[in-house]
Amino acid sequence: MTEASTSVRASSYLADASRPARERHVPVLLSECLDMLAPAIGAPGAVLVDATLGMGGHTEGALERFEDLTVIGIDRDPQAIALASDRLERFGARFRAVHATYDHIDRVIEEQCGPGSRVDGILMDLGVSSLQLDEADRGFAYSKDAPLDMRMDPTTGPSAADLLASASEGEIVRILRTYGEERFAPRIARLIIRRRDEAPITRTGELVDIVRSAIPAPARRSGGNPAKRTFQALRVAVNDELTILERALPRALASLRVGGRLVVEAYQSLEDRIVKDVLRRGATSAAPPGLPIVPDEMAPSLRLLTKGANRADQAEQDHNPRSASVRLRGAELLSEWKDNS
């Protein structure tokens, strides 16, 4: 997360909560994602798992383009499930929504498709959704004063306010450094502890003021809102995002049929690094260099579909500003998944 972006997935700048989901949500790199998945999901009876459903923009595009496709959509946010289900109701049984974190993708596929089933494609569009960012009371946005929550599933687990109320100064420093790459983490953590000793920190506006006060004035003059790294770090910690991604990737690859494809959109560097490392290992032979014949069990499991990561061009960014930081990677499963780490 070196850029400390807001890690927005599949979203547009339309933030009016009164609009229907399809008017509030423009999926990032939709055509590119579907083109990459097409060889795997274009056949009759194909199944795609949208592991990060959000408001359903990618799923809607896939169901419209591939008329015999079924999509299983996973999301941890009950509000996202409700909005996407309403948006996709016209597709009937071709769409199924599951409330879960996407590191349970293998269990979800087994429950939806039967024991031992494999799917044809998997799409992961990582980070916080436009739904969560655009609704102020969710507490994700540093630009809006709201309760300091940040839970993607607001029905479970501690909020960001709970975390700041209980974490030690050292733990806060670790979170800000690890997940936000915040160079002023010790100063911010020290001031958080001082302020919470006076009164609980329960509002996003209070946290923004703390961060602004802790960061030296010269550093506040560039790089956008000085609170963005702190908010990113707390959100990642509250939702355990990187651990879930690390668990989900191998489970997803093990759930693909041979010839199936995984496509991932990441919006900040720590997520993208995890994706890159898993795909690179899968695409690398485990055989010693110079071995004349590579045994099947040592051959690569994956063929990479991108050289490096694809980025949004200027036209996409102009149409959808939240695509500016996206990194798109994909891989095709060549043989049963094995992690050559």
Rank of each mutant, 00 (worst) to 15 (best):
D86C: 08
R87V: 07
P292C: 12
P218Q: 13
V211D: 09
D197K: 15
D75K: 04
V326E: 00
R194Y: 05
M36D: 00
L262D: 04
S255L: 05
G54W: 01
G61A: 11
G42K: 10
V98I: 11
S285R: 06
A97V: 02
L69R: 13
L279M: 12
A233E: 07
R19T: 01
E246M: 09
L123P: 03
T178F: 01
T70C: 13
G205L: 12
F66Y: 12
V263K: 06
E110V: 07
D339C: 04
S168G: 14
R65L: 12
L29V: 11
Y179E: 07
L291C: 10
A324I: 07
Q112H: 04
E171C: 02
T284K: 14
R303Y: 00
I274T: 13
T178W: 00
G61Q: 11
L164T: 02
P226W: 08
D134H: 10
D75V: 02
D313S: 11
A84H: 08
L279G: 06
V278P: 01
G127P: 00
N320R: 11
Q232H: 12
D339K: 05
L302Y: 06
R229N: 04
S335H: 11
T243G: 15
A199R: 15
A227G: 10
A80G: 08
Q268C: 06
G170D: 10
A80D: 06
L249S: 05
R174P: 00
A10G: 15
T59Q: 03
Y102K: 05
G54E: 06
H25C: 15
G114N: 08
P226N: 10
R261S: 06
G260L: 05
L253N: 06
K276G: 02
Q268A: 07
L234N: 04
L270E: 12
Y179N: 12
A51S: 08
G139P: 00
M150I: 05
E67S: 15
